[in-house]
């Protein structure tokens, strides 16, 4: 085959693989597991990447109700009866940020470390 022939073969292979690669990376996201805790106890663990549609979880504490809202691979506090509503203002849970905390009702929503089993993590808040 002449040089031009090989160039066409390789260029096509390259384009196909490049497109394939972009499709894979653009649409996949690392598995994200979150844990919802109240009073220090694990209420529920959820893998955000497997959630389809919407879901609401209601919790009640000393200061009323908290409603957790999950959809599209994200989780946030939709509403809360606590006085400051800091948990609602927190917005969506980000992997690079701090957990969603409702102190009055003692609710914490945070990412779980899927990999190794550790008791605590240094350097991950604030």
């Amino acid at each position: 085959m002449k040089n031009r022939g090989w160039i066409i073969v390789f260029a096509s292979a390259l384009i196909i693989c490049a497109v394939w690669w972009l499709c894979i990376t653009a649409f996949s996201s690392p598995a994200k597991t979150v844990g919802i805790y109240q009073n220090g106890e694990l209420i529920e663990k959820i893998d955000l990447t497997t959630v389809t549609g919407e879901r609401e979880i209601e919790l009640s504490g000393e200061y009323g109700r908290n409603i957790v809202y999950i959809s599209n691979g994200s989780i946030k506090m939709k509403s809360a009866d606590c006085p400051d509503k800091i948990c609602v203002k927190h917005g969506e849970l980000e992997s690079s940020g701090s957990p969603i905390v409702c102190l009055p009702n003692k609710v914490i929503i945070k990412f779980e470390d899927a990999s190794e089993k550790i008791d605590a993590k240094a350097g991950a808040a604030g």
């Binding site: 470390d113 990999s115 190794e116 550790i118 605590a120 993590k121 240094a122 350097g123 991950a124």
Partner: peptide, 18 residues
């Protein structure tokens, strides 16, 4: 012993070691 993870500065939901 207690195992304490050390946050990954590039992604604090991960750890670089414990």
């Amino acid at each position: 012993f207690w195992t304490v993870g050390i946050a990954d500065p590039n992604d604090s939901s991960k750890q670089i070691g414990m």
